[in-house]
Design a protein around this nucleic acid. Structure first.
Length: 284
DNA sequence: AAAGCGCCCAACCGCATGTCG
DNA sequence: TCGACATGCGGTTGGGCGCTT
């Protein structure tokens, strides 16, 4: 099975970092035609990139709504626990963090969380230095923990870009204002869109406060308990073969305002899952 | 000041999966 | 049903950058 790389026959196909000019060309094209049909993108834009590279650049970097910068403890918690449940199914995990790309999550896991988990999987006596009340202490789940690195310089919070509407501006770099302006033009819009934007900003603010009460699943905002359950089961249940009841507890813990609330319930089901709630909570 | 080292992350590679004729 | 093609996904790489010595 498999097939040769799409760029095998590409003579003169450019590789390496994207330039601001290329970003602008790609964003402009997608503005007009929408994402998809990636094969035609290099052909129609003149970009000397393979279709795969264009798709990746869009999905991992240029796509509107991508949140960059540090991961919140709540996001960390979701990643760690879902990784324990699902394994390295980054796309599935990313569906619970719609503002993060699977690549970002994968990188964050490989560079931060994997070490953290490994460290805590050392023999039990390693934990003896941890205060016995640490697990239950409210301060233990702290945004100011050492693992929570500070915002990178120059990376502004999503909502702080002036004159933008509902998308985050591309965060770093060289691409700078030009692409940002394109996004503004694209997303500056109808009153209805402005209303949606306000909703999104409120949601983002909530997430920043670790109080996310809604999730995005498959590009749709899913609200309400029933939909939450469906969304979670869609990803988790087929993999784990677990009952709805089991995952409703996880769901409470992962998605509700108080990350520790359902922990007692999880204690009772840990044997059926590969994740250990106690150890997991130590991470936080 | 500069060399060495390690970390981070954007991007690439190759395989898996989906779709269509 | 089969093969070709398009897209998705996860593992890996390597350049840039910051920190340490």
């Amino acid at each position: 099975m498999g097939r040769p790389p799409c760029c095998d026959n590409g003579v003169g196909v450019k590789k390496g970092p994207w330039t601001p000019e290329e970003d602008i060309v790609l964003v402009s094209y997608i503005q007009q035609h929408g994402p998809g049909n990636w094969r035609s993108v290099p052909e129609n834009t003149g970009l000397m990139r393979c279709s795969k590279s264009c798709r990746l650049r869009w999905t991992n970097y240029l796509r509107p709504g991508i949140k960059r910068g540090n991961f919140t403890p709540h996001e960390e918690g979701i990643i760690i626990h879902l990784q324990a449940l699902l394994g390295n199914k980054w796309a599935a995990i990313a569906s619970y963090l719609p503002q993060r790309t699977d690549n970002d999550i994968k990188n964050y896991w490989n560079t931060h969380l994997k070490k953290k988990v490994k460290r805590l999987q050392q023999p039990a006596d390693t934990f003896q230095t941890t205060p016995s009340n640490a697990v239950t202490s409210p301060n233990y789940y702290s945004p100011t923990s050492s693992s929570h690195h500070s915002l990178q310089a120059g990376v502004q919070p999503m909502n702080s870009y002036p004159n933008t509407t509902c998308t985050s501006a591309p965060s770093n770099n060289a691409t700078g204002g030009a692409v940002s302006n394109l996004f503004q033009a694209w997303t500056r819009p109808s009153p209805a869109a402005a209303a949606n934007c306000k909703i999104n900003m409120m949601q983002e603010f909530q997430e920043e406060q670790d109080a996310a009460t809604s999730i995005l699943c498959k590009d749709q905002i899913v609200t309400g308990d029933a939909s939450k359950s469906s969304a979670l089961e869609m990803v988790v249940a087929p993999v784990m073969g677990a009952s709805t009841a089991t995952f409703s507890l996880l769901e409470d813990w992962l998605l509700d305002d108080m990350p520790g609330q359902a922990m007692d319930g999880l204690m009772g089901i840990s044997a059926g899952c590969c994740a250990d709630p106690i150890m997991f909570k130590r991470l936080l």
